[in-house]
Computed example of a mutant assay.
Amino acid sequence: MRTLLNLIWLVFAGFWLAVGYAVAGVICCILIVTIPFGIASFRMANYVLWPFGREVVRRPDAGAGSTIGNIIWFIVAGWWLVIEHIVTAIPLFITIIGIPMGWANLKLIPISLTPFGREIVETHRPFAS
């Protein structure tokens, strides 16, 4: 089931979201100071390609550097991404087949809001949050 959902997601939303995150990652990696933000963007691009069957968990070893990075990320990009994911999830909930895609879009909010100090792990639950 999650493979089918991932394939549908990839065709209709995942590819374009991943391209957007990858372009942002390339732009961030141009400057040396913003390389950590570029790496976070590449991790998110990987996650949005195939979100079903994976979930975001907080890393126990995340420290003050992650907090500072998350504050900067939130101010510069995080809240824009959250608004984007919410706005695109609302129309997906209108159709029956779009409901899992809407949940996947909402599932992306925690990592797009605060990507530092989190990691993406595999799970056996297709709708893991």
Rank of each mutant, 00 (worst) to 15 (best):
I96W: 14
F74A: 12
I39Q: 00
I109W: 02
V57S: 04
G117N: 05
A89N: 14
M101L: 13
A18V: 07
L17Y: 12
I99R: 12
R43W: 06
L7N: 10
V33Q: 05
L10N: 13
W16V: 00
R59K: 09
F42D: 04
V121I: 09
M44G: 00
S66N: 05
R59A: 02
L31V: 12
N70K: 04
G65V: 01
V33Y: 00
G25L: 01
N70V: 11
P110T: 14
T34I: 04
G53N: 11
L113Q: 11
G14R: 14
G78H: 11
M101H: 14
W16E: 02
D61C: 03
I109D: 15
S66E: 05
P36C: 00
C28H: 06
A77F: 10
L17G: 08
M101A: 10
F52Y: 13
H85P: 03
F74T: 14
T88M: 15
M44K: 08
W9S: 14
H124P: 07
A13C: 15
G53Q: 10
V11S: 08
P100M: 10
R59G: 00
T88P: 03
E84K: 15
G102I: 04
P60K: 11
G69A: 09
R43N: 03
I86W: 12
V87A: 14
L49G: 00
G98I: 09
S41C: 01
R43D: 01
V121K: 10
M1H: 13
M44L: 09
V26D: 03
I39L: 07
R125S: 15
P36T: 00
G38V: 00
W9Y: 13
P91M: 12
V121W: 11
L17A: 10
